[in-house]
């Protein structure tokens, strides 16, 4: 049932045509389940108004239209901050937040995985413990702290907390631990400094872990709507703007809302499609395993 292909010789386990069809069919059904809400959003976005208000809602669209999208942009163009501003804001936060989180998490993960220094085990236990705390525990004090630091209503409030986030660090530490010590020793014998070792050995070899964290982090930041932290209209993110548009008249703007949802989903999906190959395929690289 499981086809095993090895890189060098291409030995394949025998699998019948029926087996192939069964696997493909199964994957397709599961895919349908996963994709259903996404399809639902697209279909809703394509529905004209009378089909939108139909009850019970139908799964197929009879007369597809792009009106919802044009409506959305029309509504957006009436706002006094241009839509592109919101999109740029979101991109800025998502990219900067992701880069900072990934870089610092990888840097911290390297010594945690490969060096022995006093307090290492305690530090790692603290990280694991930190994973268990729900964000609600620290939410109120964090807000109080941010107002003390005077960074509420600025991007610092959105980006800085991610420097100390534990999930990325945990994933990367687990991954770097699996890298063989031999390549690090080889680097050391060749005279590489610790920085050099990190940037030219650890960093490229942990691409899968890094990309995984990038995906999580980007999606997380892209989808965030930090209502409590950002008040200025010109600093708001795309999603907040869209919610404002839709909230104006939930029933009449239902279609525009679905169109907005579809537009919002696209960047994370693109990021995922671009990076997923890295995530799962760079693992098989020669020097590593």
């Amino acid at each position: 049932m499981f086809k095993i292909t090895t890189k060098k010789s291409g030995i394949k386990a025998r699998r019948s045509l029926a087996g192939n069809i069964a696997i493909f069919g199964f994957v397709a059904v599961l895919g349908l389940f996963s994709a259903f809400p996404f399809l639902f959003a697209i279909i809703t976005a394509l529905k004209p108004i009378d089909e939108l208000l139909q009850f019970p809602p139908r799964l197929i669209v009879m007369r597809p239209t792009l009106n919802n999208f044009t409506d959305l942009f029309q509504l957006a163009s009436n706002m006094w901050v241009p839509l592109s501003r919101y999109i740029l804001n979101t991109a800025f936060i998502s990219i900067l937040g992701t880069v900072l989180h990934v870089l610092f998490a990888a840097m911290a993960a390297y010594p945690l995985a490969k060096h022995k220094f006093p307090g290492r085990n305690i530090l790692f236990s603290i990280i694991v413990m930190a994973l268990m705390f729900v964000p609600q525990v620290t939410f109120i004090p964090q807000f109080v702290l941010m107002s003390q630091l005077d960074i509420v209503n600025s991007y610092a409030a959105l980006i800085l907390p991610w420097i100390g986030a534990s999930l990325g660090l945990f994933l990367m530490k687990q991954f770097i631990e699996q890298l063989p010590d031999a390549i690090l020793e080889a680097a050391r014998i060749d005279g590489a400094s610790e920085f050099k070792t990190f940037f030219s050995i650890i960093w490229p070899n942990s691409t899968p872990a890094i990309m995984t964290v990038v995906i999580f982090q980007f999606i997380n930041l892209w989808n965030s709507a930090p209502k409590e932290l950002i008040f200025s209209e010109s600093l708001k993110v795309f999603r907040m703007a869209l919610e404002q548009i839709v909230a104006g008249d939930p029933i009449a703007r239902m279609g525009a809302g679905a169109a907005a949802a579809v537009i919002l989903m696209i960047p994370p999906i693109i990021v995922f499609i671009l990076l997923q190959r890295k995530v799962v395929e760079t693992m098989t690289f020669a020097g590593i395993k």
Binding site: P37, T44, A225, E243, A261
Partner: peptide
């Protein structure tokens, strides 16, 4: 991608 995102919220 979706569950953590806006689609659910809006819908």
């Amino acid at each position: 991608i979706i569950a953590s995102g806006v689609l659910m919220q809006i819908l």
